[in-house]
């Protein structure tokens, strides 16, 4: 009895979470233009989507911004961790506090404050300003993922490498980097997803004519949603699903090998 109740509870929430997504996926294959009636199976919205220059541009912008923002944020975040670890506890906690501001601040405030600063200093809003804003809000995620790995590090191995004649750089790349790699990867992936998912900050810092998927959807919703966006949602959902499954499988495999080793 209790078990059925639990099952029903899980099922209702799964239904709630997935019904909207599945509906969009089904409608993306509908031949008709309206969502009210099923006319027949068709791939025409997919074809139209791939031929739509605005959608393709927004998709390219989204992915390139996410890639560069995550890359720069990862480099800055990892070097920041190296520097922060050399600091005294007191100074470090001040920096970590500052690091938390973009995480806890509301997106709308972050977006508006960046926009006002760009305009005040005479920087016109364009692709670059969006990228800068994304790097800024991605860095904290990298630091939060990498910092714990640094704390777990055995300092002796690094010192041993130095004693054996390795240069600091060589010792870092050969000894430290492999140990903090999982943190770097999760920081990069987290940054990438946060950047892809962002709407509010992009909305305020983008220039005229620069669209990401999020801002494109927002502007389309005002004029009326076309089924091409359903096709886009389906593709994004499937892509996200595949990436997450791959990431999960890889990390599970690693866990298993680690368990076997121990």
């Amino acid at each position: 009895m209790k078990k059925t109740f639990k099952g029903i509870y899980l099922a209702i929430i799964i239904l709630f979470l997935y019904m909207p997504i599945v509906t969009l996926m089904v409608l993306s294959f509908n031949e008709g233009k309206t969502m009210n009636a099923w006319v027949g199976f068709s791939l025409k919205w997919y074809k139209e989507m791939f031929e739509n220059r605005i959608i393709m541009e927004a998709l390219t912008n989204t992915l390139t911004i996410a890639f560069w923002a995550a890359t720069v944020a990862t480099i800055v975040g990892v070097t920041a961790c190296i520097g922060l670890n050399a600091m005294k506890e007191k100074h470090r906690s001040v920096f970590m506090g500052l690091n938390n501001i973009p995480l806890l601040n509301a997106d709308i405030v972050t977006g508006i404050s960046l926009m006002l600063s760009f305009l005040l200093f005479g920087i016109s809003l364009n692709y670059g300003t969006v990228l800068f804003a994304h790097i800024t809000f991605c860095i904290p995620y990298v630091i939060l993922s990498v910092m714990p790995k640094f704390r777990q590090l055995e300092n002796h191995t690094y010192e041993a490498a130095l004693d054996l004649g390795a240069s600091p750089a060589y010792a870092f790349f050969k000894v430290v980097l492999p140990d903090i790699m999982p943190g770097i990867i999760s920081g990069f992936l987290l940054s990438f997803t946060m950047s892809v998912d962002d709407f509010v900050i992009t909305h305020f810092t983008r220039g005229v004519g620069i669209n990401t998927i999020s801002t494109l959807i927002y502007s389309q919703v005002r004029v009326g949603i076309r089924p091409t966006l359903y096709a886009l949602s389906t593709i994004i959902f499937v892509a996200v699903l595949i990436v997450l499954i791959i990431v999960n499988v890889i990390s599970n495999k690693k866990e298993e090998t680690r368990h076997e080793k121990n």
Binding site: I13, M35, S214, Y218, V221, I225, I236, V240
Partner: peptide, 28 residues
Amino acid sequence: VFIFILPMWMNFLLRTMAWQVLLERNGI
């Protein structure tokens, strides 16, 4: 757990748009 977290990784404007489609007066 993965099943319950998965929607979080999808663009939230797309998810909001989905509800707009569902809830519309002549919607599903």
